[in-house]
Design a protein around this nucleic acid. Sequence first.
DNA 1: TCTTTCTACGAAACCGGTTTCGTAAATAAA
DNA 2: TTTATTTACGAAACCGGTTTCGTAGAAAGA
Lengths: 350, 350
Amino acid sequence: MQQITIKALARELQLSVSTISKALRDSHEISEATKRRVLQLAARLDYKPNPYASSLRGRKSRNIGIVIPEVADSFFSLAINGIAAVAKEKGYHSIICLTHEDNKDEQAILKDFQSGRVDGVLMSVSGTTENGAHIRALMDHGVPVVLFDRVLPDVPAPKVVTDDAASAGNATRLLLKNGCRQVAFLGLSPRLSISADRLSGYESALREAGHRPLAKNVLCCDADAHRNLLAIKRLLRRKDRPDGIVAAVEKLAPLVYQACNELSLRIPQDVKVICFSNLEIAGMLQPSLSTVTQPAFEMGAKAAGLLIKLMAGKRVEMEVVVGSGIVGRGSTGGSGKLPNRTFPNDTGSN
Amino acid sequence: MQQITIKALARELQLSVSTISKALRDSHEISEATKRRVLQLAARLDYKPNPYASSLRGRKSRNIGIVIPEVADSFFSLAINGIAAVAKEKGYHSIICLTHEDNKDEQAILKDFQSGRVDGVLMSVSGTTENGAHIRALMDHGVPVVLFDRVLPDVPAPKVVTDDAASAGNATRLLLKNGCRQVAFLGLSPRLSISADRLSGYESALREAGHRPLAKNVLCCDADAHRNLLAIKRLLRRKDRPDGIVAAVEKLAPLVYQACNELSLRIPQDVKVICFSNLEIAGMLQPSLSTVTQPAFEMGAKAAGLLIKLMAGKRVEMEVVVGSGIVGRGSTGGSGKLPNRTFPNDTGSN
DNA sequence: TCTTTCTACGAAACCGGTTTCGTAAATAAA
DNA sequence: TTTATTTACGAAACCGGTTTCGTAGAAAGA
């Protein structure tokens, strides 16, 4: 239990704690001979400096907070890897906090972060978050924040997003091209940028094709899978039911499949489906799922890079847009089995 | 940037820092009137105590470390939720660290944890870990550890596991029952308990049915998906190729599907497949995937509960076994479309 | 030789809480 | 009324590092 402290090293070597500290930090004030002795003993005793003591004195934690709705989502798990890779390289630890799509949890986490626990925060807001007051409050306390993917318009923080509107438009156009007459849109809270932007891309594509966007074809889902399933089934039981679905978040795809299954609707014959998703196994679903695939790892890495600059006091671009790609597979019908991949339309500014 | 410290509160209220601290911690030494004043001001200024200062003085961090191979795995993401739920309730923060199945990363993380960063560790070891020396080293430094799912025999820490051998045996028997003549087993490193135990369950089931377990039908995979895919294809290209596959970890399922697809082998007609997995969308794969499903959330919660007891200095049971269930679906052929679910054979000792 | 400049180290303050201990004033017991 | 006890608070030590500042002795310059 008794940790090996710097004091123990000092006693052992008959040196002062300040000398040990300086030696460990390779200060020029310490002779090479002494440094060697200190380093050797530290290695032998497997000494690890207490991070809390360092944080306290240095007034920085070398921790970054990652605040996301959940981890069981391939976009977020890939983004985490991107973030962690950059953070680790720069000597930062990542603290992952999950909101479970609950704004109350999100607020509590950001409140906690006012304590100085982290030097900066990367976040993707929850589906129940109405505005960015809690994020601004954190920023007012001097904690830099970078938003990625799910951003909010009223937060003056740098943002890393994909070309949501364009991608949703492309997805919608693919469905229309493949014969859909009535395309529905499944999103989350319209307060979320990804919902709003993807919705507007969907609407533009409809208008462009001479269709009128209809409110009844737009469904706002939430974190309750069961309720979402019921809503989707209600949508698909309508007499004038949609024959195409653009789903804006990954977790909705299985629900659409399940709903179709339970209602004996065939994909893609009766309903064509495309979903924003990074699922590796999209191609092995029944039928294989067409997706809008985001560069999740790169977005995480980019966001982490921005945050690190920000924490160093540098100025950074306020919006980075990276392109997503569409992978057409079985669920959108069309040209057959081969995936017709469109390349990311890279409108990025990095 | 300037955090609100306890000193600021003291100055504002013309009290000493010790009085503020005691008031905030509801000490009996402080009058109700003073407590009220302090609490009010703290609330008004949105004061949050610096966790590092508290940790330093109290010599405990109220953090628990979660060390797992990856997060893009439904077992682990569910387990995290179970852990976090319990931890949060007990006032602990969770620090998630990913090893990416790399023993070097795992060692580095545990080394870091010797610093006092966490009060206890929950872990599921990486696929490249050969032994538990690094875990024992951490424990020798007084940090309690609880292993879950992927455990090692040579670590004297409490373990939370499923009935791996029994479940793998059941999975194998299901394949045999459905007509397989030659069942292969895909695992990770045989050093891992889950690989070894599941393998032995598979072998027992084979012997029980009068088959001889063959080394050529056992494949040890690793973290390299491409290499794994090649190995699986090699297995399935053999003249006497297996007609059944038991896959011991979730990430192998898509690879088996892909290999069959590329080799034009039909599931379940040519090859029947069952996999240890918690994937929600297993039922929507092409064909739907039969699974051995573990109670991931409960395992995480149970492990966290044990760790918390351990950190409180209590003694706990050294091994908790919880049952897994088999969900038979399309990939194992057999009785048709309806999933034939076996209930978890609960041999748990909790 | 005497002064100046390094070199190499130690003492002590500091980060922001927590806790022990001491104490003045108020209250209770003798 | 005197003594004992309780109440309510402040001073200071402490956690384990980091950093500033001071200085003895050696080396270099005058």
